[in-house]
């Protein structure tokens, strides 16, 4: 553009930028950005609301769980399995060569130091989110002695690692800490 005057060629057709083109682009861009900004609340309202996010931690008394027993607790409206492993179950989990696993992890990596017998995992199958069997009294534990998901046949071992079936990952270990020897705080 040579100077201001050359832009002011309203009414001229053909090539060259007219004031009207600028107004046109500016108006459409302004409306476009404004319209896009309106999407933010429309999309964001779908995300978990404040009250859902507030249910972020749970304390559980584990004193009554005997070796070989497990309980189901609730964390964020989803089940958590707290299992007191027997020495045999710990031995079975440690015997496995981790390189043969789909999601290689040792039992030590999945438990707290000195508390290897306390296996705390989400009770949510990593395939499509069913609750695996094996935590309740008399439930099927699957061929690896841990958990068995009835929906699509995923089997987990005594460290709740995926061993067979369609699930891609081991049962998730949530964030937790022992607040005392008998109380665990999840979340």
């Amino acid at each position: 553009m040579a100077d201001e005057a050359s832009i002011d060629t309203s009414g001229v057709t053909g090539e060259g930028v007219r004031r009207r083109d600028f107004i046109n682009i500016a108006a459409v861009s302004f409306a476009g950005v404004g319209g896009a900004a309106v999407l933010l609340p429309l999309v964001s309202q779908m995300a978990p609301s404040a009250d859902v996010l507030a249910q972020s931690s749970t304390e559980i008394d584990i004193s009554a769980i005997q070796p070989g027993q497990a309980i189901k607790a609730v964390f964020r409206k989803q089940p958590v399995f707290i299992r007191n492993l027997t020495p045999e179950e710990i031995a079975a989990a440690e015997k496995v060569d981790t390189s043969s696993l789909r999601d290689p992890q040792t039992l030590e990596e999945r438990t707290k130091e000195g508390k290897t017998n306390w296996l705390i995992t989400m009770g949510v199958c990593t395939h499509l989110g069913c609750v695996p069997l094996g935590a309740g009294e008399g439930e099927v534990k699957g061929e690896f002695g841990g958990y068995f998901c009835p929906c699509h046949g995923s089997s987990y071992d005594t460290a709740a690692r995926i061993r067979k079936g369609p699930a891609p990952k081991n049962l998730e270990v949530p964030e937790y800490a022992f607040t005392s020897d008998t109380v665990v705080k999840i979340g």
Binding site: A47, V52, K77, H127, L128, G129
Partner: peptide, 23 residues
């Protein structure tokens, strides 16, 4: 909704967004 969780990277946030919660 777990099906959407299978999508790499964005799957799990997408699932939470679709449900408006964790379950």
């Amino acid at each position: 909704t777990g099906l959407f969780g299978a999508i790499p990277v964005v799957g799990e946030p997408l699932q939470v967004w679709l449900l408006g919660g964790y379950a």
